[in-house]
Simulated scan of single mutants.
Amino acid sequence: MRVNRVLLSAALVVVALIIQVSVLARLHLPGAVPDLMLLVVLGLALVYGHVGGSLVGFGAGLLADIAPPADHAVGRYALVLAVIGYFAGLIKPEKGQVKSALGPLFVVAGAAVGSTVLYAGVGALVSDGATRGVGLGSLIATATLYDLLLAPFTIPLVMALARRGEREVTGESAESGSSAGEAAYRWLASGSSSRGGSLLRGRRGGQLIGRQRTGLLGGRRTSNVKVSRIKGVKRL
């Protein structure tokens, strides 16, 4: 990933984690906690693609695993968000621009269901009882509802910031390429002009030398003619 992507992703993930831990988790809503980290990963994956989405998801999940008050095994949520970011990046729209608002909502709903099921499945494999005491159906329903309510306020903002960063990078590269091309063109133009000037000077110098030679030869010829005429007169 490029430096601008890493910096933007890190900033958005940290802000999302702070809001989720300090605000959303303290609301004590029934069922699941609104997953702002998941929405940030989805927004970045829809712009950066499957590779960037998986990397951002893994980093965001790992940060959530080690940030207090995490009560599950480290790496569990990192795996979940990496998989979700990868599959969300596979349906990345062309040029990162969404034509309809229904597309991201379907992606959010599928990601909420998939992340909840995958989180519970990984917990069952590693014998992590963090989701015990809460029904899986209730978690899926509440997680999907909360994420869909937060998506219109989160996904467009994240995608707009990511697209802006991409445009700035492409604009800088295009400007540097054009300036280099202009410099090369100027160098070629100056070189061609100097070469043209030297060629013109050489031609002019050759013409002058040729004229001098012709003038000298012409003078010699005229002097010979005069001498022959004088000799002829003397003979007569």
Rank of each mutant, 00 (worst) to 15 (best):
M1Q: 00
V6H: 05
L7Q: 10
V15E: 03
I19H: 07
V21K: 07
S22I: 12
M37A: 05
L39T: 02
L42D: 04
L44Y: 09
A45V: 03
H50W: 05
V51F: 11
L55S: 02
V56S: 15
G57A: 06
G59H: 02
G61L: 08
A64P: 07
P68A: 03
Y77L: 11
A78T: 09
V80I: 06
Y86M: 12
A88M: 05
L90C: 10
I91A: 15
K92A: 06
K92R: 12
K92D: 05
E94C: 01
G96M: 05
G96N: 10
L102I: 11
L105H: 11
V107C: 06
V108I: 04
V108F: 13
G110Y: 07
A112V: 08
V113Y: 07
A120P: 01
V122R: 14
G123Q: 09
V126G: 05
V126R: 08
S127I: 07
G129F: 09
G133T: 07
Y146T: 00
L148G: 00
L148E: 02
A151K: 01
F153A: 15
P156L: 01
L157A: 14
V158Q: 03
V158D: 01
A160N: 12
L161K: 09
A162I: 00
R164D: 04
E166G: 10
E166A: 08
E166H: 13
R167D: 07
E168N: 02
T170M: 11
A174C: 04
E175N: 05
A183P: 03
L188C: 02
L188Y: 08
L188R: 10
S194D: 02
R195L: 04
R195E: 12
L200H: 15
R204N: 04
G205H: 09
L208V: 08
L208Y: 12
R213D: 09
R213N: 12
T214P: 02
T214G: 14
G219D: 15
N224R: 15
V227L: 12
K231M: 11
K231S: 08
K231Y: 10
V233N: 03
